[in-house]
């Protein structure tokens, strides 16, 4: 299960330098927030008894970001990535704030925001060279895993 975002949505990240709004997007789905773990484990016992337990890792979200290679946003996220890799004390786990605006027939707009906390870089942006016109070679794909999230509507 994942939330997908396009360049029309408002994507903001807070890193060790403060907040910034992403704008250097690649094509199509530019950000995806996946929930890879279930929030609860449920089973059925004898006589149909319900057995359930919280699964705390179910709070985690995995963000995949597709940015234009060497853009301003790519450079900024690369700084965070490098700080983490080098165990630099200036590193701060990132926070993301992604908003989708949902328009209603009466003209009102609802902001559907997902805030994710304590994000660490878990994937390495791949570098590739391709002579057959593969545009993926000019896209930097970042993967961050967040410990917790909150949806605000």
């Amino acid at each position: 299960m994942a939330d997908a975002y396009t360049a029309q949505d408002t994507l903001q990240i807070t890193d060790f330098q403060g907040s910034f709004t992403l704008s250097d997007f690649a094509e199509g789905t530019v950000a995806e927030l996946a929930a890879n773990n279930e929030l609860a484990t449920v089973t059925t016992g004898y006589n149909g008894n319900g057995l359930g337990a919280h699964n705390e890792p179910g709070r985690q979200r995995v963000l995949t970001l597709r940015l234009v290679k060497a853009s301003e946003d790519d450079k900024r996220l690369n700084e965070t990535f490098e700080l983490w890799k080098k165990r630099d004390m200036r590193f701060k786990p990132i926070k993301c704030n992604f908003t989708k605006n949902v328009a209603h027939s009466d003209g009102n707009v609802t902001h559907d925001t997902i805030e994710c906390y304590f994000g660490l870089p878990t994937g390495v942006p791949a570098v590739s060279t391709d002579t057959t016109g593969n545009v993926e070679q000019v896209v930097s794909i970042y993967t961050f895993t967040f410990a917790d999230y909150k949806r605000i509507i």
Binding site: Q8, Q12, T21, S23, T99, N101, V109, H111
Partner: peptide
């Protein structure tokens, strides 16, 4: 390009 008004780009 990076201005957000009322949570909208």
């Amino acid at each position: 390009a990076k201005v957000v008004y009322d949570k909208q780009r």
